[in-house]
Structure formats: C-alpha cells, structure tokens
Design a protein around this nucleic acid. Structure first.
Lengths: 337, 337
DNA sequence: CCACACGATTACATCGATGTAAATGGCGGC
DNA sequence: GCCGCCATTTACATCGATGTAATCGTGTGG
C-alpha cells in the first residue's frame, strides 16, 4: 500500500478530508474532540502531507533556494549555514544550489530554476548582468547578496565594500606599508566585488598620498588558494616588490601566505597580508590572518527576512531595498596583530 | 496573468494539452510538425513545467536530498560539490541539507523530510542508530555515506577506514614515531568513524609491537579546528608526551598544528601530524599536512548511481549494497614529505 | 416557539500534468 | 472500394490537498 493520504486519515478518524486539512492548517473552528481524533489518526497511520498536492493547490512550496558560486569557498559555506538556520527558524526549507559563477546557472536561479519549486531565491551572483534582471518575472522574489551593480530590480544585501577595503588599506598604511598589492583586484573587470574593493583601496592610498602602480593590481581567475599563491609569485618577481598584500578574500590570502613561506619570506616581518571574509581557517593558520569580517549572520538574517516578507506579501510589494550589513577589521598575526 | 500552463501552450499551438505533454516528455509518436509548433509555443509563452503538477501525477520530483552534518567541515562541502555535479549530469537536482549531526534531523532525512519532496536521500550520518533504520519505509531509497554499523537496511558507500588508519599509522611508525596519539579517537563511543579508525591504528601498533596507552586516545566533542587545538594542549601536558598526532580529520590536524606552533613545537621536527580527508587547506597550510585522501569523486559517483538506480527501479529492488571506495595516503610536510 | 446567528463540518471544484484508452486519419493490400 | 494497421492525437480521469460555499446543528434573543 502506498503512503496514507488525507482521505485515509479522514476515514480512520471518521471525518471528512477537509476537516483533516483544517486540523493540519490550524483552522480555528474545529472542535477539540475532532482535533484530537484527527491527530490520533495521523499518528496511527503515520500520515504526512504531500507537498506536491499542497503546492499545486496553494502555489507555495515553503522552500527557498540559496544559490552561491562555490561551496568550497568557506565564506559561502558559512553563509549558507546561517541562511539555513534562519529559514529553518522561520519554518521554511533552504535548497542549496551551486552556480560555479556561471552565467547560465545564475540566470536559471533568477528565473527560479525552470521548475518553480521554490517560493523565492537568494542569489550571490558573479556573472549576472544588469540586463539579466531587466525583464525578470518579479513574481518570484529575489534577494541578491554581495556587490553587484544591478540597481533597482531586486532586493540587495551587502557590506560597504569600498569602506571595508579603505579601512583594511588604512591599517596597512598605518603599519608603514607603502607598496600594497591587491590580489584579486580589478578596476575595470565585471566582478563588482573586485572593483569596489579596489576603489576603496585606491581611496585610502590617495588620501595618504601614496601611489598605486598598475602592476600592483592583479586580477585572478578564481578566488582560491592556488590563485592567491600564483598571484603572489608574480608580484614578488616585480622589480620593485610589494611590502603588503591586500587579498580580496581569505583563500587568496592563505594562498599568498603559503607562497611567501615557500619562497622564504616572513609574514608579517617582510610583508603584511590581509584578507576578506573571516573564514574559520584564518583564525588557525600560521600565521593567523588579518581579515575584514562581514557580519555573516546579519547578512543571512536580513536576506531571509526580506525574501520571506516579499513571499508573504504575495505581490510586487514595495520598491527594491538596498541594505548595508556591518563589517569590522580583525587584526591578526599576518599584519602584526 | 499567472504563469502559462500546459493548456495555454496547447491553445497557442493549436493542439491538445496531452500533445504538449508528449512533446515535453519526448514521446516517440509525435510528428515533426507538431513538435516544432509546440516548441515554438513554449518559447513564445515562456512556458516551464510546474513541478508540483508533475510530481502529483508521477510521484517523482527529480530531486534528491544530500544530508551532511556540517557544511563548514570542508570535506562535506567538497563531497557535496561532487554529488551535485554527478546528479546534475544525470538530470536530477540535489537539495542540500545540514543535519548538525543531530539525531532528530538525521531521522527526518531517513524519512524523507516530512514532506516527500525528494525521490531519495543520501545521508552522511553521525547520530543514527541501527534501530532508526529497522522500521524505515523502504519505498524511499536511501544511501548512507561514511562509516556506520547499520547493516543491511540501506545501501552504503565508505572507504575502508580500518585499513586507511592502519596505513597512516604504519607511515608514522616507519618514521620512528612510537607514542602516537589519536585525536578524535574513541574505541567505545557511538561515532563509528572514530571507532574504526582507532581500531586500524591499534592494529598497526600491535603489529609493530608498540603499546597504545589509553591516555593517547582522545575523543573530541566535534571535528573542528578548535577541538584539534584543545586536544593537542591536553596531550602535550601528559607526563610522557606523544611524538605524533593521528587526527581523524583534517580540521583537527590543522588545529593541532596551530596549537603546537603556538606552544613552540616544530612540525614535523618535534612531532608528526596526520589528518584524514585531504581538504584543500592541507595543501596550503604551513606546514602542508599529510592526510588520508578518500576518493571523494568515486564516493559521490557511486552513491548517486546507487540511489538513482533504486529510484528508477521503483520498488524494493535488490538487497542493500555495501561498497568500499578507494583511498590513499598523501604524505606532506607535516610528516616529513 | 420561531427566526437567526454562528460554530462546526462537509461536498465539490480546482490547482497542472500525465497515464489510459479510445478516436482519428492516412495508407497499403486484397 | 473496403478492411485493417499503425502513427498520431485527443478526451477524460486522476494524483493529494485545500478554497469556496453550502449544510448541519445548537443555542439565544425576541
């Protein structure tokens, strides 16, 4: 025999299917007697609602999707945990999807994955273009995470990347560093996080009257250990070497630290290294790594809140919201902390 | 207007709804003319199947769940990537769920999460008990990952933990180590990975005629950096200190390396450290960390294969399968590599 | 004692897609 | 010219849950 259906529960309890449904949905006008009878029937038969039937009727699944570029990047894994914890607290389920930063996958996320099995989407985009959002179906609530110059069309939560980078660079300047390279930096590329953080870096240098030669801004193919290590080797071969590395995430920073170690440089004696994201590894690496810590829990909480509110509103709702989450610089051994 | 339904497509194309459905499902006997007409209608209207309707009718969602204890543990994040890649390749979608190793959540996973939105479940259990599987509903295919003495009732993929641990310890013995502690080890606890790996360790020591004092087998509350560091401090305060640490995952190993560094010990000069899992961090830490590398891709591939086969079989299928995935010891700096 | 309100319950239609079985129509063979 | 075959297409019922609106029954005020 198949799984029990609501009809089976109804028969067992001697009521109608609709009454069982009413009990399941905490409908007000159900007598205590029937309510317990139905509950007993549910327990006895081991009944569980079929989400497909419910969704078909209600148009909601109770599930949201979180789409991130790469779960191997610890920041996203940590963020995902927070998002999951938050949605669970609010009675929803999170479907986690990896986009690999590929444009087609991010587009699929914006569109609700071809199958509408989610009530809404939280997306941390890398490759998304403004026009991808221009004609999107606004019936599917969407919250974007992290930097992206995609104004107006979707809610958005991010830290103030310019300020964060400026503070990181100010910290390095205050330690006497002057040739500060930006690993993962890029002033003209499409990756907005890179651009904004590089701008912040520039601002800090400009305010201090320090030059930023082009060769010290080094884009990377991906934000992983190996890329940080490779970039470091390139930078250290420059005629005039850098005396600090501002790495746009912690994996790059850890890769830089490793590469410097292999080539016999000491961090922080010879060079300082700073990262972004405050992943757990930076608190246990040798040396521990100074990093800009975004308020991950705050980001997750706010994103989920925005999304679920839109879902509950069940309509276009208000205009898109743009929220700034907090961050702070945590100074550790890699820059003398 | 709401999203287009199959009926809208049918009207637009001038055919019946069932014909559209036939096109969607690649039914053989559809004329080329109708097929293109329907395809055009689908494109024109931007139609996408409603998974709820489909599931209701077919009883399948095309989604499977992967439930792991903790995404912060890089091994699970890496494994999840492989599982996702594999299911995607085979046309399914993976729903990722974090259990936190909590018994109630693992039980929910075994039961299909109260809502049957998945066709099957891949679960990496920590707290599951044999009796949790005894009366499970075998209509929901289930594949278990990692060690768990839960015989017979579900498919199972894992590496040979006893052998893997034995090899790791043999490696340490061959380097002259004799007082080898096991961080995360536990001969009598409920965590099977701990038990089996400790047994393997014991076997290697016994074969070499080396004693294993109880105090060198140290259970930990969780398998994270901080736990490895804490355990290390305890062990290094013993009257007779260990000369090597066999850590039952890489996070513990990295925590141990850090704690040893803080207390002025040199790895691998004073002590060797070995981990399990081959997470990316072990290839970039200072020192890089020797580790037992499970064939993650192989595990993921086989698990997905087993699960999807059971789903396709659409019945109890054959008896539960128990598969062993490959592993190899990768010697790195932390033990002289 | 009746009309009426209101709480509790139910019959029925419906959400969207697809399996079943039957209808349609073109073609070759006798 | 009729029959039967087969490719193609369709009508209809169905999956499970729930919204709508109607029904039932009890208690209350006039």
């Amino acid at each position: 025999m198949g799984r029990p259906r609501i009809k089976d529960v109804a028969e067992y309890a001697g009521v109608s299917a609709k009454t069982v449904s009413n009990v399941l949905n905490d409908y007000e006008h159900v007598s205590e007697r029937t309510r317990t009878a139905v509950r007993e029937a549910i327990d006895a038969l081991g009944y569980r609602v079929n989400i497909a039937g419910r969704q078909l009727r209600r148009g909601r699944t109770g599930m949201i999707a979180l789409a991130v570029p790469d779960l191997d990047v610890a920041y996203f894994a940590e963020l995902a945990r927070h998002v999951m914890a938050e949605t669970e607290r609010r009675g929803s389920t999170t479907l986690l999807v990896e986009t690999g930063g590929r444009h087609e996958k991010e587009l699929a996320a914006v569109r609700g994955f071809d199958a509408q099995f989610t009530d809404g989407v939280i997306l941390s985009p890398l490759a998304l273009q403004p026009r991808d959002l221009a004609d999107r179906d606004t019936r599917l609530p969407l919250v974007l995470l992290g930097e992206c110059n995609l104004p107006g069309s979707a809610d958005h939560v991010a830290i103030d990347n310019v300020t964060a980078a400026r503070e990181a660079t100010e910290h390095l300047l205050s330690r006497g560093r002057r040739r500060i390279a930006v690993i993962g930096g890029d002033l003209h590329g499409s990756r907005n996080t890179s651009r904004l953080r590089t701008v912040g870096h520039q601002e800090a240098l400009a305010a201090a009257g320090v030059a930023l030669p082009d060769e010290l801004v080094l884009p990377v193919p991906a934000f992983r250990w190996a890329d940080g290590a490779a970039a470091t080797r390139i930078l250290m071969r420059l005629p005039e070497r850098p005396d600090a590395m501002l790495c746009l995430n912690d994996h790059l920073a850890l890769g830089a630290v490793r590469a410097l170690h292999e080539d016999g440089w000491s961090v922080p004696k010879d060079l300082d290294v700073v990262g972004f994201d405050d992943i757990e590894a930076t608190r246990f690496s040798i040396p521990t790594v100074t990093t800009v810590a975004p308020d991950k829990r705050g980001i997750a909480r706010r994103a989920v809140e925005l999304l679920l509110d839109r879902i509950d509103a069940d309509g276009p709702g208000g205009p898109a919201v743009d929220e700034t989450a907090g961050h702070r610089l945590i100074v550790r051994e890699s820059s003398g902390g």
